[in-house]
Computed example of a mutant assay.
Amino acid sequence: DSPGGLTFELAAETPLMLIRFNALLEQVNQRYPQATVKMRHWDYDSLDAITRGEVDLGFTGRETHPRSRELLKLMPWFIDYEILFSDRPYVYLREDHPALQETWDLETFLRYPHISIFWERSDTWALDEVLREMGRTRNIAMSLPGFEQSMFMAAQPGHNYIATAPHYCHHYNQLHQRKLVTLPIPIDEAQAQKLTVPFTLIWHKRNSHNPKILWLRETIKALYGSPLR
């Protein structure tokens, strides 16, 4: 019932996972002594890796914009999932950013160069769809592999870049003592709702009753089910 030598394969959005990853490791080691935990960053191929059995469980954000390719309802029929919580993206600026001396509105938001991330083989995401509907675009001056890198660059001195990332990154930045100011994206509520991100556990249906995966799901839910509180 507590076999040694098990391997847990996770594909996860790493800034979120790292916030409480040490606590997860402690619980894995207590429940399954000598287990190995392997974590890879969630990317374009992760869903296929779950299908092939190379990954036990995925943990990542999806999109809710009606034209997004990352909608949960577009998941293959053989994939099961559970939403743990929903979040929204926010803007991150260093403490002496010139935008903080201006009225925080859409004009200010679009006036400065943006740091984007390369997500699911694209530099744009639901925010860019919302802006396009409004007849606007943002200046993506830098594209990086993930939120960790975008937060790091946003905190560096001597530039006017701004980053956009989930609100939970505020906690991640506190852990790393990054002095970043967090602001809402300056759009109305109807448009902001299209940016809601459901953070979701994802697994193959064949693992729905696997004791190891069931235990892992419940453990992650206990650790990450309400990270904004």
Rank of each mutant, 00 (worst) to 15 (best):
G158V: 07
F118M: 15
Y112Q: 14
L180H: 03
R206F: 11
M142E: 15
D128R: 04
F118R: 14
T164H: 10
L127T: 01
A165D: 01
R132S: 12
F152W: 15
I213N: 07
Y172P: 04
R138N: 11
N173T: 11
V197K: 00
K205S: 10
L216G: 10
Y161G: 10
L195M: 04
Q193R: 01
D128Y: 05
P166F: 07
K221F: 06
A154I: 08
L131Y: 04
H167Q: 11
R111V: 08
I213V: 15
D123L: 13
A222L: 08
I187W: 00
D123V: 14
D128F: 10
T108Y: 04
Q174G: 07
I117S: 09
H176R: 12
L195E: 01
Q156T: 12
A126C: 02
I202N: 02
T137H: 14
H159I: 08
E129Y: 06
A165I: 02
R217W: 03
A165G: 04
M151E: 09
A155K: 06
P145Y: 11
F118S: 14
A155F: 07
K179E: 10
F152V: 14
G158E: 10
F118K: 15
E120H: 14
K179F: 03
E148G: 13
Q191L: 03
K205V: 08
Q156R: 11
K194Y: 01
T108I: 08
A155R: 09
N139A: 15
